[in-house]
Design a binder for these strands. Structure first.
Lengths: 122, 122
DNA sequence: CAAACCTTGACACGCCTCTGGTAAGGTTCA
DNA sequence: TGAACCTTACCAGAGGCGTGTCAAGGTTTG
């Protein structure tokens, strides 16, 4: 059998068995199960566990962050909504050509100005 | 003067003054300051506050998430690293026999398996 | 069969987030 | 000047995260 049990996987990836279950519950790494329900970690999962550790320590992020990034790529509505909101910052992204930026910015403004107008009192 | 104080801005955006300060500390919306240090919210900030509220309630996310998305677009290294990790997700097609899958995995992660190889026992 | 695994569920603890307060002190303006 | 704002800096409390541990019970295997 080319798969490790949770304790074995934990040992060689330097996580604890507890954390392996936690990572699974976070939807990050979901190993196969044996007939009796035992978790079975194959080479791919082991590698992913190692790189996950490197990822979170290198950038000092949490598993929740990684899960959110995962959600971001599976939920297009969310990705678009957040991107729009961040884009609306009064800072011009460097990778957008000036002409495109301007036209896009005008579109956006026309939509928002109707709502924003009422707020300018003193 | 075309700018609101924190209490005024809070009232019309349906946040609390406390949360406006919190949102600022989270790096999401940083209003101008008056000479004496008073926060001054202009139309752009007010609109951004409203859309922020809609964003977090619609998708049930936290300010931390929005801040993380912001970090994601300003830190290319982070974005690439997370994207790579998510891309490497092992989706094992059910119709592929185990032996083929294993070889495919080895091709894909050939250099990584050198590290993982020691683990395949049991 | 018994040891040594595995499973889920729960309690616990420290730290962070979100949100509301309050206190001590500076600013604005009638 | 005094009321009514504003500022920062704390305390507080519920809830989530990261982690360990323990209990009750199923599985595997010598």
């Amino acid at each position: 059998m080319d798969a490790l049990t949770i304790h074995e996987a934990a040992e060689i990836t330097d996580w604890s068995p507890r954390m392996l279950r936690y990572i699974e519950r976070a939807g990050l790494i979901e190993p196969q199960r044996s007939g009796a329900g035992y978790r079975l970690y194959g080479p791919a999962e082991l590698q992913r566990l190692r790189t996950l550790r490197e990822l979170v320590t290198r950038f000092d992020i949490g598993l929740g962050e990684v899960g959110f990034a995962q959600r971001l790529r599976s939920d297009a509505d969310l990705a678009v909504a957040i991107d729009d909101w961040l884009e609306a910052k009064p800072r011009r992204p460097q990778h957008v050509p000036a002409a495109d930026w301007l036209r896009w910015e005008q579109d956006k403004h026309s939509k928002l100005l109707a709502l924003a107008g009422a707020a300018t009192h003193a």
